[in-house]
Amino acid sequence: MSEYKDITIESEENDGKIVFAEDVVATIATLAAAEVEGVYGMSGTAFEGIGEKLGKKNYTKGIKVEVGAVECAVDMSIVVRYGFRIQEVCRNVQNAVKNAIETMTGLKVVQVNIAVNSIVFAKEAPVEQPKPEARVK
């Protein structure tokens, strides 16, 4: 089990606190990155891969979030689809993650570092064999 780290934001309007779990920010970033065209998914460690094989969904795979009181930084490892220009995909991911986190949590995103760990190729469609014509009706 990972450490449960909370992000606490003091609310100026009411005398209360807004608390975010660190994993929440990571999940927001993961979902934002997954929606970018050209991104196949996140690239995690071997242990995370084993956990996924056992059926445990992990929305924080391949992502590390560092949070402060008002700012946060994100390090991500992604898998890109072949054929897409990697620099453009990475720029789009950076913008998407920044917008998503700032909109949903109010934290200022100072850094989004991305490492492309691997490339996935589209599976070639199987060649359909023509059905032999019947000799007799």
Binding site: A73, Q87, Q94, Q111, N113, A115, V116, N117, S118
Partner: peptide
């Protein structure tokens, strides 16, 4: 301005 992007040698 947002950070660094890198590609692995494996990719």
């Amino acid at each position: 301005a947002l950070g660094e992007t890198a590609v692995s040698f494996a990719a």
